[in-house]
Design a protein around this nucleic acid. Structure first.
Lengths: 210, 210
DNA sequence: TATTTTCTGTTGCAAAAGCAACAAATTATT
DNA sequence: AATAATTTGTTGCTTTTGCAACAGAAAATA
């Protein structure tokens, strides 16, 4: 895992009069922001978890990204070309920093402490985001539900340094994240149990493969 | 589209004695690099086109990313957790800049012109990469081959500012890029023609929807 | 230019995934 | 504690996708 500085710590003892920065809190299930064409917001999740969710024309819901502490989101990272609605929804109580900027990597005119720190650390945070996106692509390019599940489990297991873990999603959300039908996914989970690949009780999974 | 500085122009009249930078050329179908665990190379495609390709255990080939001028690649952007082979293959004659770095965003000790310029421009190039990856995810999360094709076509069409365009891939490669079976994709293309969504002659597609 | 290789286009059949509907279990709300 | 809402688990049926195999076209190579 790549290291990154502790933004939360930094924010805590941070008081700025910089008018380009806003700190807001959200409670579970609230909409944090929706992506709007021709705006270019940058947001940093300081605390909590949230999802970027898309609802398409067929009524399918997709969890496009899953955010936790230090995750970046906002239109800066997205070319909004489609008519799909893109919403960021709080999964737990959240603290989010909104950054309205002229030039993302330029220090603001006041040259305030916040902008200085941000400019220094943003590149690494973005790099973390890129590796996250690449892992997501690796999952999505797998051809079967089985391979998607196994790939996802193996990922979480590696992160937790344990073959046994609680899913960070409900099973309903996991299906939306892997972009597959929920009932088909449930069926495949059952088969994975029957074939001895995994053990499962509730949302706790134990892997029987390395 | 986001703007970015012209790296090719910059490289042309660039001569450095910085020992951390290498410029190499490749001809079509040559392997530019393969991703190696515990190395952290950063590469910039100065000229040409190339693909990041993965071969999985089932023998499936996936085009993970498609690179053109100014694209970034290398292990910096990838957590190599799987046993899958990841190769960058030149699709056309290429010029690639390899950057062996200690700290990606730190100027090198010699404080050479190249590192200065790169440090200034890298963040924007990375941001472009992030929006590319997000578009790719949007495509891959579409549930049917039909929607993937239509989404992809609409993307290319928007980029080219025209409802008619040559595919930048062979159809075989397009299937590997959309992560679907080639023959199933061909069948769907035929249906799209029959249903009047597209016209197709060879690798030229014309869209009949906006 | 002849020959080999790759790519396109097609099809029948098999396997996988999606859809719809519902009951049971769990969690949230009043 | 009672009720409502959401999530889990399951299944029969339908549709979509994948697989395999092959012929013709196009492109690359000798």
């Amino acid at each position: 895992m790549k290291t990154s500085f502790d933004l939360e710590k930094f924010i805590e003892d941070f008081s700025t009069n910089c008018n380009k920065v806003q700190l807001k809190t959200f409670s579970k299930n609230e909409t944090v922001t929706s992506y709007i064409k021709n705006r270019n917001q940058l947001c940093i999740l300081i605390k909590g978890t949230a999802d970027l969710v898309r609802y398409d024309l067929n009524g399918n819901r997709t969890i496009v990204e899953h955010f936790s502490k230090n995750s970046l989101f906002g239109e800066v990272f997205y070319d909004i070309t489609t008519n799909n609605e893109l919403l960021v929804e709080a999964r737990a109580n959240c603290t989010v920093l909104f950054y309205i900027y002229d030039d993302l990597f330029q220090k603001c005119k006041q040259n305030c402490k916040f902008h200085k720190e941000l400019a220094e650390n943003l590149p690494q945070l973005i790099l973390n985001k890129v590796t996250d996106l690449n892992m997501r692509i690796e999952l999505l390019t797998k051809r079967s539900i089985r391979d998607k599940l196994l790939g996802y489990f193996s990922l979480i297991s590696t992160r937790n340094l344990s073959p046994s873990f609680e899913l960070p999603f409900s099973l309903t959300d996991l299906a939306d994240y892997l972009s597959v039908d929920r009932s088909a996914m449930m069926r495949e989970l059952k088969l994975l149990k029957e074939d001895g690949f995994i053990e499962k009780s509730g949302n706790r999974i134990t892997l029987n493969y390395r």
